[in-house]
């Protein structure tokens, strides 16, 4: 069981109250009509699936019902941090910074 810190409720809650909602930081193309099929396909379907640190979108569905981000290690399941939508993660993979 995870014990997850909700950045909106500002306290730790049981994992049961949360739901994962996929990878975080995927910007919607500003002009979808101008996208090529490949760009639109990338946006809709292709995800990074890294080994190690991964930024994920989670929702506190049974609590404050807000979406927020989690940086989680996909190998150890360790949650490094949770942060509000619109803010940047502290923990990143080396190649993300390159």
């Amino acid at each position: 069981m995870f014990y997850i810190y909700c950045p909106y409720c500002e306290e730790h809650r049981e994992e049961e109250e949360f739901h994962a909602a996929g990878e975080a930081h995927i910007p919607r193309p500003l002009d979808p009509d101008a996208c090529t099929d490949e760009e639109w396909g990338e946006y809709l379907f292709f995800r990074t699936n890294p080994r190690g640190l991964h930024h994920e979108l989670w929702v506190h569905g049974v609590g404050c019902r807000k979406y927020f981000n989690i940086t989680r290690d996909t190998q150890t399941y360790e949650i490094k941090e949770t942060y509000k939508i619109g803010t940047k993660p502290q923990f990143t993979r080396a190649e993300e910074n390159a």
């Binding site: 409720c9 809650r13 049981e14 049961e16 109250e17 049974v62 609590g63 404050c64």
Partner: peptide, 9 residues
């Protein structure tokens, strides 16, 4: 707090 209550909330 809003939390689980049984299988409901």
């Amino acid at each position: 707090v809003t939390s689980l209550f049984g299988k409901s909330q």
